[in-house]
Amino acid sequence: MSETTAVSGRPAFVQQLEAKLGQKLVRLDEARGEITIEVLPENWLAVAAILRDDAELHFEQLVDLCGVDYLSYGQAEWDTTDVSWTGFSRGVEGEGPGRFDWADRPHPAHIPRRFGVVVHLLSVRHNRRLRMRALCTDDDLPGVPSLIGVWPSTDWFEREAFDLYGIVFEGHPDLRRILTDYGFVGHPFRKDFPLIGNVEVRYDPDKRRVVYEPVTSVEPRVLVPRTIRDDSRYDQAQAEAAAERKK
């Protein structure tokens, strides 16, 4: 949508990116006028330095950094492509984070490139945005180098991604948990972490202090099953909107 990104001279900028990054660029995507580049974790720091320091790119600001867990990407709980004979159960069975508790949590098989780190950059000078992604090679101990020497604003973002996804940022001087409780176990935003959590707290009048216990006050439940539909209705809506604009 033209409204989302008012970027000037985009094709030239894409060519510059390709020329400057060369072999370090794994993939470049231009969907919706938003440019996404993918790089390997080993080139992460080098690419960041080029993007910040090159006068024609000049991304002086890191707007956002976050982790993504691609486990179960594209999996639905409700089959919409075929007739089902299993009836009701297809709506109440599934593997989403809302359907299990801590004791029954799944232990997914080894999936390389399960975790990703996504960075959003902004060039105030050129009024441009860029999204940069790296997929971690190891899913047991996912990690990328820390960008803290390039953009100091990444400090807390990396701590957050470590806390929520367990992604380790090598070279970060102070990689502590940031959002979760002191002494928290697990990485809550992973797709195999239960939505209801692992422990709950309450005041114990006998012990006269706050105690941590496994969650019992809520049960895992999902009200609306996860459904994927890829029919043509949005094409129709887009065509209608285009016709409307022409009038």
Partner: peptide, 24 residues
């Protein structure tokens, strides 16, 4: 698909990064 949309909130840039895999 994925998108990042930002608005100038009173405190600064408030952005939403949204990744969809085609689901509801």
């Amino acid at each position: 698909g994925e998108t990042y949309s930002a608005v100038e909130a009173p405190k600064g840039e408030f952005g939403i990064y949204l990744v969809s895999d085609g689901a509801n």
